[in-house]
Computed example of a mutant assay.
Amino acid sequence: MDATERIQAASQFLLQSPPGEINDVLNDIRNIISDDELLQEGIQPALREYNIEQFTVVDVPETNHLSIISEAARLGPVSEEDDAQERFLDPRSKLSFEFDHLSLEASDPQPYEPNEEHEPFRLALETAALNYLKAHFTDGVIVVLSPKEGSTQYVIQVVANKYNPTNFWSGRWRSEYTVDLESKQVAGKMLINVHYYEQGNVQLATTNVISFDLPPHVLSAIPNNTAASKILALIEEEERKYQVSLNETYQEMGEKTFKGLRRALPLTRQKLDWDKVLGYKLGAELAGTNKSTLPTS
């Protein structure tokens, strides 16, 4: 396998990294490649793709909050001929910034002027979203973005990470919703990734796609805070139903699926009396001892 093929394989490993474990994967790959310069150059596209897809959080300079790296927050196209660093938007602070996908650091914050027409409702959605985040996510980050040019879709993004390497598990919740005032709909998805690796390696990756119409009484209240709060309440109900369905699925798996993976009875078709197991073993040992001490003719 040549260097190019090794880099391609390494990139695939990175893209499949469990939540919070990409540095561990990167260190393992580094030992395999044994060429830091080649590795750093070759995996940049994979790191960029991973950070954008996984809603990597970033500490934006000159602010006291975290923001999200995502496609919706990216400003402008990126071409191979353009050497300029890619920029992302933090709408909460009205700043754009450069982001290094390897060091995960933001730099060069610059003021960003939001669209005056869209900003009032974006602010209303942001206020309602921050209240929702505080009520339901311990360590979550939320971003609300205005429609891009030519669009009517406000974007709400949530990410919450929980890393517990001491107990061998990690998890990530991601959700993204588009509030489209033209189609009068909300469409979105919830993505959950969990990795449990104590004496094994088990991963859960699940996605739930939703959409619902905005009721007339909500549309008539836009751009007021009341409309924004009602939209977040509708999103909350969709997430609640999804979590209930997950709990029901896990309960059914424990009661039916996993039990079906093991034999209900041994080959004798009789239940084993575990209280007598020691007696069985002791009897066999005594029988073996008696045989070995019998006199031979």
Rank of each mutant, 00 (worst) to 15 (best):
F168V: 02
K281S: 05
I7N: 08
E149A: 15
E98G: 14
Q251H: 05
R262D: 05
D108L: 10
Y154R: 07
K134E: 15
N167F: 12
E238K: 14
L232R: 03
L14N: 04
P114T: 14
A233S: 15
D36M: 10
R92Y: 11
E237D: 14
D180W: 03
K259G: 01
Y196P: 02
T63C: 09
S220Y: 02
L75P: 09
L282Q: 11
A160G: 06
A264H: 00
L232H: 07
A128V: 10
D82A: 03
L15M: 10
N164M: 04
V244H: 06
T206G: 07
E248Y: 00
E176W: 04
Y197K: 08
K271G: 07
S67Q: 02
I68R: 03
L104M: 10
N193K: 15
K184Y: 00
P111W: 14
L261Q: 02
T138E: 12
Y196F: 13
G188P: 03
A227T: 09
G200W: 13
P61N: 08
Q251P: 00
D28W: 06
G20E: 01
F137K: 10
L38P: 14
S183L: 02
T206L: 13
W169V: 06
S170K: 01
Q153W: 02
S183G: 00
Y154M: 12
N193M: 07
S292C: 07
D36H: 14
K148T: 06
I231Q: 04
H65F: 10
I69T: 04
S17C: 05
G171L: 02
Q270L: 01
E236H: 14
S17G: 06
P147S: 11
Y112F: 15
Y242N: 11
Q203M: 09
Y196G: 13
G171D: 07
Q40R: 10
W169L: 04
E105V: 12
F121N: 07
